[in-house]
Structure formats: structure tokens, C-alpha cells
């Protein structure tokens, strides 16, 4: 979130999308797949943050936890309980994968709130693979666990027979819309908040409205802190719900 600069002409310049640019940190402007870009930097920082929180902070193995260890234990208990509540005991086998998703998203979201930071989760190139991984993983798991009876999920036996084909079509469509909404929700929320803050920042160049602009940035920032956590939570809980469908398709 760089601050918007005033253009030479004296008018306001809104460049809310510039913060999402992927740039190489060194060398020329060509982005190869292995180039160390700002996206790569902040993705790596998210990994580092996960390491610091879950490994370094718990290295003392204190019976009475300190602050950092409490947060690590809270994160563990939070996701563990979520998986157990939604997917049941057999869902706990997939707990490390879900915890991986949650920790990556929550860390990337929060690190993206730092000024001048890049938010990996605001890019469809990041959220779509995440959502596709969940979608493909859950679908394959559903067929492996239940065989062809996994398709029974689309055949609503509690509905009247005449309605069932129509319902099956709706269910099928909604099933394939899942990865779309799953990924667009996360990237969209991240992008929206950051872009709105950037627009407020653009208004701050105008002396008359700058107090309101700063106030607006502050308010949006508070909302963003909330949204960053809620979006990570929602992504994780929806992953759990999809996983439950794969494990028990007849509910």
C-alpha cells in the first residue's frame, strides 16, 4: 500500500492497482517463473512467519505458555476443533493440510497489511491454485472413499422424483462454482480492501478532505484487520465443509 503521489498537473492520481504489480526485486523487468519477485519475497516471509510462530515460539515447550506460544496453541486448537467439529474424527487425518492452508493464508493476509507490502493472496494466480487444490483433492478423495456412490450427493433422494433431475443440475452447477467462489472471495476481499485504502490515500493529497481521508484509511484498516482473519477463517471452514461432503456424501 504505497501512498498515492500527486501528479505534476496538480490533480489527483488514483493508482489503486499499482500495489498489486508483480516486480522482480533485482535485474530487468522480465518475470521468469523462478525470478525472485516481490510476490516471492512476501510469500517467503509468510513461510518465515509461520516458522517463527509455530516452531520458534514453541521451542521452550513451556507448560505455562508465554504470549507467542499461546497464540501458536490457539491457532492449533482453533483449526483442530474446526476440523473435528465439521468433518468428524476421520477428518483429523487431513488436519495438517488444512492447517497449512490456514496458516499460509492468515500470514500472507496479515503481512500484506504492512505499508508497502505485497499481498500474495490478492492475486488469482495464488488463490485459484489454492481453491483448485482443495476442489480436486476433495473430489478425488470423495471418489476414492465412496466410489461411484459419491455421485449420490447430487441425487437428492429427499426431494420428489420429478424435481430430482433439476435439483441434480443445480447441485452439479453449484459444485463446480465452489472453486470459483472459493478463490474469488479471498482474492476479491483482499484486493477490495487494499484498493479502497489506496483510493482514500489518493484523496489525502487534497488538503480540504485529507483529514477525512486519513480517518477513512484508519477505519478501513481496522476493517481490513478483521477481514484478513475472517477470510482466512472462511476459506478454511469452507475447505472443511467440502471435505465433509467428500467423507460423508449422504448428509
Amino acid at each position: 500500500m504505497e501512498t498515492a503521489e500527486q501528479s505534476d498537473g496538480g490533480g489527483l492520481v488514483f493508482k489503486p492497482m499499482d500495489q498489486f504489480l508483480v516486480k522482480p526485486l533485482s535485474g530487468d523487468g522480465i518475470v521468469q517463473w523462478f525470478t525472485f519477485t516481490n510476490a516471492a519475497l512476501w510469500t517467503s516471509l509468510a513461510v518465515l512467519a509461520v516458522f517463527l510462530l509455530l516452531v520458534t515460539a514453541t521451542s521452550k515447550r513451556a507448560i505455562i505458555p508465554g504470549r507467542a506460544q499461546s497464540i501458536a496453541e490457539f491457532a492449533y486448537g482453533f483449526i483442530h476443533k474446526m476440523v473435528e467439529d465439521i468433518c468428524g474424527k476421520e477428518g483429523l487425518r487431513y488436519f495438517p493440510y488444512i492447517m497449512t492452508l490456514f496458516m499460509f493464508i492468515v500470514m500472507a493476509n496479515f503481512l500484506g497489511l504492512n505499508p508497502t507490502a505485497f499481498t500474495p493472496t490478492s492475486h488469482f494466480a495464488v488463490t485459484v491454485p489454492l481453491a483448485l487444490a482443495v476442489f480436486l483433492g476433495v473430489t478425488i478423495l470423495g471418489f476414492v472413499k465412496n466410489g461411484a456412490s459419491f455421485l449420490g450427493m447430487f441425487w437428492v433422494t429427499s426431494a420428489p422424483l420429478a424435481l430430482r433431475p433439476a435439483l441434480a443440475l443445480i447441485e452439479l452447477i453449484s459444485y463446480f462454482v465452489r472453486p470459483v467462489s472459493h478463490s474469488v472471495r479471498l482474492a476479491g476481499s483482499m484486493m477490495a480492501g487494499h484498493a479502497v485504502i489506496k483510493v482514500f490515500a489518493g484523496f489525502a493529497a487534497l488538503a480540504a478532505v485529507s483529514p477525512f481521508a486519513v480517518l477513512g484509511i484508519t477505519a478501513m484498516y481496522g476493517l481490513e484487520v478483521l477481514v484478513c482473519f475472517i477470510q482466512a477463517y472462511v476459506f478454511t471452514i469452507l475447505t472443511c465443509v467440502y471435505l465433509k461432503d467428500a467423507l460423508h456424501p449422504h448428509h
Binding site: M82, D85, I230, Y233, V234, I237, L238, V241
Partner: peptide
């Protein structure tokens, strides 16, 4: 959890 799913 249901609340958040609905909101989502």
C-alpha cells in the same frame, strides 16, 4: 461456524 459460512 454456520453463521460465518452463511456470511461468506
Amino acid at each position: 461456524a454456520t453463521l460465518f459460512i452463511g456470511i461468506a
